[in-house]
Amino acid sequence: MKDAASAREMATGRSTPLPAASGGPAILVRDLTVRFGGGAAPPVLAVDRVSLSLKSGEFVSLVGPSGCGKTTILNLLTGLLPVAMEGKVTILGKPPRPGNPDIAYMLARDSLLPWRTALGNAAYGLEIRNVPVQQREAQARELLARVGLADFCNAYPKALSHGMRQRCALARTFCLGSPVFLMDEPFGALDAQTKLQLEDVLMDLWSAAQRTVLFVTHDLAEAVALSDRVIVMSARPGRIIADVPITLPRPRSVRALQKDEEFHKLYARLWGLLEQGSGSNGS
């Protein structure tokens, strides 16, 4: 419960120092190999000797061709994947387990519960984690205001637009105040305008309370604009083929970056790497 208390404090927006993960990396993946299937079907090598390490407070994007194992890696970190794996995986020094309060997971689809209002949805994670009702609702309200949904607290998901639902899911994720965020293409299905807007919201929320973020995306511009580093994976079986530091100064505005020359250079470089990785192992 001590952890939850400090996490809640962080969610109020002040840059509280992270519960120092004994100095070690926030996320550590070493020589991870994952095979699916076996039994009747021939096993599929999904992830091949992947190693990555995220420092506390780092924002790292993971890009790669479809099917290269990005979602698989996130699922493994949450402990939700009952699959044979080799290698070592730790989050804040601990092995993955389902329901780890150190992790906030945001899926690609908003997965809002249609029978709950925006407020109920934003507070859902805290409710599962047994935070008292007044506290969780106050926090959910604050986060909803931060994502521009202050007037929609009592709206049901059916009455929200696609982008608004995604913002509500973002509020639910940030409400958790977990030190580690795993996000799987959270803005994948949005129009360009809404996407820029939500990226700025994410940057604001992230810089207000530094969390470690592992962010999966197909959008290289998004990856460059948001991240400290971009990790590029090859086509299946997924291997890491590049780890590109993004040296653009912070704070960044995703909108302003669209006109930045350095930004476009990095984008072009990543694009080249990704092409190379997709071509090398097509089948």
Binding site: P98, G99, Y105, L107, S111, L113, W115, E127, I128, R129
Partner: peptide, 23 residues
């Protein structure tokens, strides 16, 4: 999706049933 989300959040089977499955 609702089940995955709830399990990732650490919902107990009891919570999953009353907060997701039943509604």
């Amino acid at each position: 999706d609702h089940l995955i989300l709830s399990k990732a959040l650490g919902a107990t089977p009891h919570q999953v049933f009353f907060k997701v499955t039943l509604p």
